[in-house]
Design a protein around this nucleic acid. Sequence first.
DNA 1: GTCTATAAATGGATAGAC
DNA 2: GTCTATCCATTTATAGAC
Lengths: 192, 192
Amino acid sequence: MDQRSQRHLATKDELISTAWKLTDEKGLTGWSLRELAQANGIKAPSLYVYFPSKDHIYDEMFARSYEDLLEYLKQAVLPDSPRERLHTFATRFFDWAVSNPARLQLMFWRVVPGFEPSESSYATSVQTLELMKQTFADIGITDPGALDVWTALTSGFISQQVSNDPGGDRWRKQLDQAVDMFADAYLKPARA
Amino acid sequence: MDQRSQRHLATKDELISTAWKLTDEKGLTGWSLRELAQANGIKAPSLYVYFPSKDHIYDEMFARSYEDLLEYLKQAVLPDSPRERLHTFATRFFDWAVSNPARLQLMFWRVVPGFEPSESSYATSVQTLELMKQTFADIGITDPGALDVWTALTSGFISQQVSNDPGGDRWRKQLDQAVDMFADAYLKPARA
DNA sequence: GTCTATAAATGGATAGAC
DNA sequence: GTCTATCCATTTATAGAC
């Protein structure tokens, strides 16, 4: 890759990073292209060198979020015990998620009017769910219902934490106990 | 109350009702005052006879949502058995919530940029949580942590249902089992 | 209470010079 | 790649006639 392309991608990265900063401060739909440009020291029309529309910026944020999560989950060192694996998995997902609440709105809710992820971005999101499924299969949980209970439980904890105790640990403190509750109910063979 | 005031309130009701219809179709921030007015056969400026600003419309929607939930929960016929009470409470909340997904965004998430509920609206929301607390105290659950796990669990089920299987029953089907899981863990004295 | 007209601001996006 | 200038649509909200 030549220098020009590299600089181009670097600027793109900076723009996305700035977009996240603005999103943190003012919400996912609370910033304009003018603001995004200004925060990067350029003017709004210059953005169109990097993104063909605002929705394409959202799409890039969407795709990178799932890539980031996928990478983060893959890096987890999973213990041997199924129960401990659940704890590790839950904690890791929780910590990652609450570190950027607006990201959740983009990834899991339909909060931006009119925005639909592109096909390739959607594929990335599916890949992440596949990893979760596999992780569960590895510890003997293949019932799809159990997986649904798991996603509801973990995402519920996350959304309660970010919306009712932002920056705190009120739900974080209950997480281990909740994971044990789940393990007791769905990890039938292996009671500690 | 004279006829004029009655008509005034009736129109207000219609406007709020239309606002919910538009919200269902286009999202909480996806409609404009022009559209709201047009859908009611009037012009945008006439709205200001009923609401001093758009945020006041959101505030009214917010307050009425909590009033509605409070009323709905109060009407529940609660069985004697603590475990059955949990089932009733969860099911009722779930069914109420999924019937209007956007309402959840307004009530439980901070999705509308700049909108903050007024003091009186906020008070209504607190009242609802108090009822929940009391309901739990009645069946012997006074540990605040247990209540937090409960809200995370139920709200998690709801948000998964509306965002990943809208109109379906994928999480609804798992709800009873999840409530039993919770009961097993937190209703210690009363095992069925 | 409802309207027309319009203010005042902001939005995303484009044209074309440099 | 970045700019100025601008388009064009849209927004919330107000003024003032009826």
